[in-house]
Design a protein around this nucleic acid. Structure first.
Lengths: 114, 114
DNA sequence: CTAATACATCAGTGAGAAATGATATGACGC
DNA sequence: GCGTCATATCATTTCTCACTGATGTATTAG
């Protein structure tokens, strides 16, 4: 039974990893952070994040395909917004966890140096 | 003020990305998933996850440095456990978000195929 | 003291994604 | 129609990380 439980969850572990990869990038986190203040068009996101325009567009496409943001076109402008409040909840919990493990994360040598 | 808020958060965006990278790997998620059932020694984790022993040790070191797990030695055995209930909360939120965006995540072509 | 077990570390390799620059599409003003 | 602005796509380069296999260290048994 325990073994079966592992097998059953293994299927969704790949999904979890894929979803978390969607979040685990400074550029996308910056975009989501700005979008948490409200819907915004692309050139505003470019200005607010300091990222290049193609870069922002690429990340937005990624976030859009994954369903993390939604968009609606108005003339030349495309406005993006966070698609679900559960995303905000998740990011809030990340910050809550960082309150506990921030020092350890800072010290962790395994990932690209900050 | 808004600009300052962005600057203030920019510092922690790197932390968030780094923390989320710690989660965004199938092997580490599998380890955390098994550990959510209770503390366990390394060779049990190896058996339960099907990963190689050096691989498990490497990921455990990563998780340990980041403060996501803690360990205590007992003779030849080292027992690992999840360090904070907030980690479980976070993983629960991931599953809750997947309930909404699972289809989009599946369809997303940007990351490594499953 | 020797061997075996449990775990950790290291170097090398390969896959994959992030950023950039150039370019393409699409909509509006003139 | 023409130029321009807003956004999207593409190709290339670079960098990073996950896995493997071999080896190192610690602890217990005999």
């Amino acid at each position: 039974m325990t073994q079966f439980a592992v097998d059953r969850k293994t299927a969704t572990i790949e999904q979890r990893a894929k979803l978390l990869r969607g979040f685990a990038d400074p550029s996308r986190l910056a975009i989501l952070d700005v979008l948490s203040e409200g819907p915004m068009v692309v050139h505003e996101l470019v200005a607010r994040t300091g990222l290049s325009q193609p870069n922002v567009s690429n990340h937005l496409r990624c976030l859009l395909e994954c369903g993390l943001v939604s968009s609606d076109r108005n003339g030349r402008f495309v406005r993006y917004r966070i698609s679900s409040p559960r995303i905000t909840t998740l990011l809030t919990d990340v910050d809550a966890l960082l309150d506990v493990v921030a020092a350890g994360v800072e010290a962790c040598e395994n990932y690209r140096g900050m």
